[in-house]
Nucleic acid binder design. Structure first.
Lengths: 216, 216
DNA sequence: CCGCGTATACTCGTAACCGGATATACGCCA
DNA sequence: TGGCGTATATCCGGTTACGAGTATACGCGG
């Protein structure tokens, strides 16, 4: 029954469970199937992690090796199958994921929270570049979705890309607003920010020290 | 000059660099400062990672210990300061973060891509619960932002929360649309999905095997 | 002035992660 | 048939991540 170990949190493990619900597979085949179906765009896949995750699932009793075969003199393949516990875990985990939003830490948010380290004019330039890139990505995503639709691929199969698209569009709108907010000083604090960088940008609200000549 | 090691990728390291640009600090103080300013909402902070990251930064020559003091018989505190390389790294990294969107893997996207594993009616229930939770989170976020504004906190200081809010609102709208799309079968493929689960939900498009009686 | 909760400041061990190696087989062109 | 690019499969080793533990100091109520 696998006593209390640290819970598996890598979503790749969820994908493994879902694949094994369809039929027993060996790890490499799981990876190939994920690629075929484009799932590696929504779940980070790399071989190292895959084998680690499969081992962890086995330790937890969620999957078991069914057979180890060797065709010719290729490396052995270990085929795994789902246990009942694994099936239950899959359902429970997936329900959780859909039901409750989890706190995440997108890198852009980190960038924003430290943004004031750079002077406002430069930030505007950088964000403008971001806008351009976002537009490109959105166009690419939309084109992919349209092409699939034209070929008759059902939309639920690509629903995660639709979500991605919606979020990127929202980000694009937001960044455009932010740029305007900085340029027109519509946001409170931009004046302070500008002033802070205009005169060398040392110290924040305490004095002492006047070494550190803003070398860079 | 620190020869080619694996690049540091944890955004917490970026926060450390940004804090040390203000003034030399010891790790615990960095954590305390981040908490004070609410940065731990946008950058994941925990002590284990903090010390790991500080070591890594030192190895890379981006920060150096300035002094190790011991007050009374408390544990030693090692105060670090930024090097020129560190200052350059901070600027470069931050520019990158603002300039180019990076591919990320939100958990909900993983959930969506495996959603069809569950029957459509259940998914509707789960998503409805998500909508409720999203509404709560949005209300909380907005209230926090309003309260801060009322107290005269400049908006650029909380810009990352504004971003978070915008994304959550976009997600909320999207999930509502999805629910409607499933219920009204407006999305292509929902009929197939419904039919698939109506009759036991075994196999996908290949036959063989009729064991596995959908135990759960 | 004694205890005890909280704040200060790190340290450690176990997992997890992940970028390459590694090793064989197969197809195909010259 | 020889060679080389690609596909098949897995493993390894060094980082990284992180919860939990450790140990001292301080404030304050009784």
């Amino acid at each position: 029954m696998a006593k209390q170990q640290r819970a598996i949190s890598n979503p790749l493990a969820l994908a493994v469970l879902a694949l094994l619900r369809e039929r027993p597979m060996h790890p490499y085949e799981m990876a190939a199937t994920m690629r075929e179906r484009g799932k590696h765009h929504s779940i980070k896949l790399n071989y190292g992690s895959l084998y680690t995750v499969v081992d962890a699932l086995e330790r937890h009793g969620l999957i078991v090796p069914r057979e180890t075969v060797r065709e010719g003199r290729r490396p052995e393949r270990t085929v795994y199958e789902l246990t009942d516990a694994g099936r239950a875990k899959l359902d429970g985990w997936l329900r959780d994921l859909l039901r409750r939003p989890v706190k995440e830490y997108p890198q852009f948010e980190a960038g924003l929270s430290l943004m004031a380290t750079l002077p406002p004019d430069e930030v505007v330039t950088l964000l403008t570049e971001r806008v351009r890139r976002l537009e490109e990505e959105i166009a690419r995503l939309r084109a992919g979705l349209d092409a699939a639709a034209a070929q008759g691929v059902p939309q639920i199969f690509l629903i995660e890309h639709d979500y991605e698209l919606a979020l990127k569009e929202a980000e694009l709108r937001w960044v455009r607003d932010l740029i305007r907010g900085i340029q027109e000083e519509a946001l409170t604090g931009v004046d302070w920010w500008r002033g802070f960088h205009a005169q060398g940008g040392a110290h924040r609200d305490d004095e002492r020290r006047e070494e550190e000549p803003v070398s860079n």
